[in-house]
Design a protein around this nucleic acid. Sequence first.
DNA 1: AGGGAAATTGCGGGTTCCCGCAGGTCATTT
DNA 2: AAATGACCTGCGGGAACCCGCAATTTCCCT
Lengths: 244, 244
Amino acid sequence: MKILIVEDDALHRTYLGESVRAALPECDMVLEAADGATGERLAREHASDRVVMDLQMSPRNGIEAARTIWRERPDTRILFWSNYADEANVRGISRIVPPGAAYGYVLKSASDERLRLALRSVFIEDQCVIDREVRGLQQKSTGAVSGFTDSEYEVLIDIALGLTDRTIAKRRNLSLRSVQNRLQQLYEKLGVYQPNEGDAEARFNLRSRAVTVSLLRKLVNYTALERAEIELVRWLEKEGHSHR
Amino acid sequence: MKILIVEDDALHRTYLGESVRAALPECDMVLEAADGATGERLAREHASDRVVMDLQMSPRNGIEAARTIWRERPDTRILFWSNYADEANVRGISRIVPPGAAYGYVLKSASDERLRLALRSVFIEDQCVIDREVRGLQQKSTGAVSGFTDSEYEVLIDIALGLTDRTIAKRRNLSLRSVQNRLQQLYEKLGVYQPNEGDAEARFNLRSRAVTVSLLRKLVNYTALERAEIELVRWLEKEGHSHR
DNA sequence: AGGGAAATTGCGGGTTCCCGCAGGTCATTT
DNA sequence: AAATGACCTGCGGGAACCCGCAATTTCCCT
């Protein structure tokens, strides 16, 4: 059994290596990669179907790498090992995991034992293992009050990128008013209306404020923005061409 | 000689401990703290004047902790050990370092040797050591083209927080038009005007877009936002009281 | 098939934002 | 003293935003 480790922090990488060797004596080969790109390459060359990797990496982050790995071998088992449990990461993963694939998500703050269990469950038993803290987010994200619709999340990203209402409408194939409706729902759910006890004037620019609280609540984060920006420029180019 | 280590990641903490012991044989006591708050407490109790600490921590981040430590003992030597070299961190530190204090800033990606040198320089020789990558930012931030005036940085933070023009004016004691002037300069320097080859309509909401590119260029980051938000609510409360 | 909730769209308005223009103030220069 | 430049300020207008209202479409459920 071969296992591929993708993690840019050297200390964490050696720690993962030791944990893997200790938890999985049936593993006879441990590959290591220090960034997403070489991780993808090693996965391809060695046809490795068991990967444990970090999410926060630069220049090529974990979600991107996982996407291409899964595109080439959808049955790859991937265990994500991340610092944070924020909605942006969870959403990003559940968007790309192939149906039926085994994967896991454990936090770096988890105990050695928890990591050991996750390694065995995902790589030997083909189970899905998701830390409780993260699981809480998943429930919310599909569910009720504090969770967002996919469409709401879309406009959130769009205004975070700094797009105009009109541009959003064009990009998402909606009317101007529909975009503004979504925005209203978003403002509502983010609790951005706080005229400070009734009477006084509004202190916040709703649009910008919405982005701020999303950042503070970790509904979006830096890597999510980065990814979205890349998609945006791609779309902008396509748009530009079709208009001349 | 006593040395206090403040770092929330367990692996990095033990690594730092080993490095300190290896680089500084004259050190006979190493204290460890896993977050900013206990770091402050240990520093107070043990009257420690040599601290090495991480910047990215939660709930209480490194800059806050450093501020209170320096407030109590301005001659404390602090070596910051950080993942990133972005303008928000550099600005945050140079804003709170007491005149004459010795401090250092090295990246986690630095080699063992570089860390060793920094430890000895800051803690033994009372020198200031700043990684080259970070130094580049410092030059820019006080200087010419791509750097910002302090006042421009202020409005940047304010719109990142989602404030209205009017509110910014009140907070900074300016007229509405002056705030808008600063904003124009900001938009100019951030290069936010890109109507995509002349004719076409504007695709970006300048205000939001400015925040986005500042984030992408790491002129502001999550912890800077967090700090600014705290200051903001403090100001809002004061304002609220004075108005009834 | 039919009823009802949810989403989409148009219209109209009030507000905020973005910014050119035209003065002001203050400090430094010549 | 005049001149230059940097900054702040008021005015006005066009564009974008925020949103209530109401009509329509879409979707889902029994």
